[in-house]
Write a protein that binds this DNA or RNA. Structure first.
Lengths: 350, 350
DNA sequence: GCCTTAATTGATATCGATATCTTTTGGTCT
DNA sequence: AGACCAAAAGATATCGATATCAATTAAGGC
């Protein structure tokens, strides 16, 4: 009895409350919210004012029950990306799914046979579309299985999207180029490079960006400073040890992702090599680990959360088009990356 | 035209389809789904069979529009927890919120004044409840501001819940005790301990668990092996260096969280101390970093995602009670932790 | 065996937003 | 000025699940 629907209105403000307040029908309010064209200016303003006055916010759950669009299910099929990467994707994805009233189904798989099973489980569950985070985004068999049964696919963070799939990604080439320029501008000439897992498409593209950056600065590639990694912390540890144990170690190391950069930094800490005074290190992706470690990592920020969000809305649109029989083509969306200039890079020594 | 509502039924299976198939009313189906008691066994079975046969899954969005519970808004107010920790909380939280049809509002703040502003923003936005992840879960002023205006509060992962707030947490004492037992069982006698940030409540409790573990094993505390940390990677780095630079270094180090343990391991890698042969390291929380680094970290798994989920449903229940005028008391929920015995710990050397 | 009570089941209204259809409005063309 | 038509606004039906109340059945009690 204490707290009985206190405050001005009785709890939540609905579209009808706004309508009453503005003296129009709720349909008009709906049209205003959805930027529908057929509303005259004075009315639109009156409605907008009421929305503000009542602090109206839409109930997304209700919207999604609207006729026809009921219960869109989107599958997210992953094999073994880094834990934090997937977390961020899901963070954005779940948030957007909630907004759209869609349902996200997370499905895990391993080898090829297991991929088949996972795809079947998703189809059985009646998904209307599937998002493939890396590294599955580049798996042709998986994509085919899905497209064959008419389910649209979206590849997340692939460097080279397969045909027929939508994609949300950044320009890995430009990102690697920007980072390399950053290093050469700081005066680094001997730059080590740690490649990623060769089965992931960004691996090669980032390397190409690095090469371009070197040639721009008139530096000849020293093949001995290029080490193969696997995108894992452990491979970064090994590659770092290999590079830093040389008698002519590089003054900077460009690791193809943050986990490997963290490995390199761990080795450097052990060798009492101070960062960034004696060695500059940079990574790629800007996963949480980049700002966890010390010194904080200079890296290319990939807006993973936003990409997760965008993946969901992009494939949602596609599903809507397909359901209503409209013509529909895969959509490619390029997100902006940001160079995060933090504390792990500095001027080349001496 | 290619994909025109293929498969058996015309799109999504609803509760009504199931009802028709089973020859009952949709209300009965609803009761079966929600494990409501008042359904006789034969009918329940018939309904269950139909659910399976039609591969029915519920439309969560629709459920959340149900009378009365429309548009619950839950605020999540955080200051500066580790990025990955918050991610996991939100992952569980968003997922559960979607299920319940609630809306989650994320709000950030810094100092005390900024906390006031943040609380005001949340109240303005009309939140019905607020979740406080660490370290804000222990902030008495914030809690007071909220309870004063009648908004229920839930503290996440606090070790000592303030009065009047609900809480979702693990038993930090037992967790630290289990981990210490693990080390002593492996034969370690000289065990270093890195404390966490003194303003967080789990810091002291974990230390107490450690002490208890030592005394159980009949080990006298060496005060020199206890170092103050801050829950940050950097403080782990410094503490690790301090402990490992001693002439009589410990054979095992218990860091109060994973980030600090990662710092210790970085130092060890640098000193070419092999883990776990020469040094055992363990952390606490099992954040993604624990399985990212190498060797993978022995730690206490805190089910953060599940705790995020549980926080949302717990405060949701509370909100429901308050809204319907039922009597309502804060709820405390203790989650199970798990000892993750991975590769960073081993038998004490010689 | 009849009546009261409790346990089951069903019928109907509802939630919030939108699709769709209908009515009204306002303007243009001859 | 009258007719006609598109634009603008409203009325109503709908989505899927559940709350609520009514109807039915079963279970005891004397």
């Amino acid at each position: 009895m204490k707290r009985q629907r206190m405050s001005d209105q009785g709890g939540t403000v609905t579209i009808h409350d706004v309508a009453r307040h503005a003296g129009v029908s709720s349909m008009t309010v709906s049209r205003v919210i959805n930027k529908n064209v057929n509303v005259r200016e004075p009315l639109r303003e009156k409605v907008m004012a009421s929305i503000k006055a009542l602090k109206y916010t839409m109930n997304m759950a209700a919207r999604s029950t609207r006729a026809g669009m009921g219960g869109v299910r989107i599958g997210v099929l992953y094999s073994h990306p880094s834990a934090s990467y997937l977390n961020e994707v899901m963070l954005g994805g779940l948030d957007q799914a909630a907004r759209l009233g869609a349902q996200l189904l997370l499905e895990k798989c391993g080898g090829l046979q297991s991929q088949k099973n996972a795809v079947n489980r998703l189809v059985e569950a009646g998904v209307d579309g599937v998002i493939l985070p890396p590294p599955l985004c580049d798996s042709a068999p998986t994509v085919q299985m899905l497209t064959r049964v008419g389910i649209p696919v979206l590849a997340l963070a692939t460097a080279r999207p397969l045909p027929e799939v939508s994609a949300v990604r950044i320009d890995d080439f430009q990102g690697a180029l920007a980072l390399t320029r950053h290093l050469t501008k700081l005066g680094h000439k001997r730059i080590g490079f740690i490649k990623g897992n060769p089965t992931h498409t960004p691996t090669e593209v980032r390397y190409e960006g690095f090469l371009k950056g070197l040639s721009e600065a008139g530096i000849t590639l020293d093949e001995g400073l290029v080490v193969q990694g696997q995108f894992t912390y452990k491979s970064g540890l090994e590659a770092g040890r290999e590079l830093l144990d040389r008698k002519d170690p590089p003054t900077a190391i460009f690791a193809s992702n943050d986990d490997m950069a963290a490995g390199v930094m761990a080795v450097a800490h052990g060798l009492k090599i101070s960062i960034p005074e004696q060695l500059s290190v940079c990574g790629f992706d800007d996963t949480p680990v980049a700002s966890t470690i010390w010194p904080q990592l200079t890296t290319v920020h990939q807006p993973i959360v936003a990409m997760g969000r965008s993946s969901v809305s992009t494939i949602f649109e596609r599903i809507k088009e397909l359901k209503s029989g409209e013509p529909s083509r895969p959509v490619h969306q390029l997100m902006k990356f940001t160079l995060m200039d933090r504390d792990s890079t500095g001027p080349a020594p001496k």
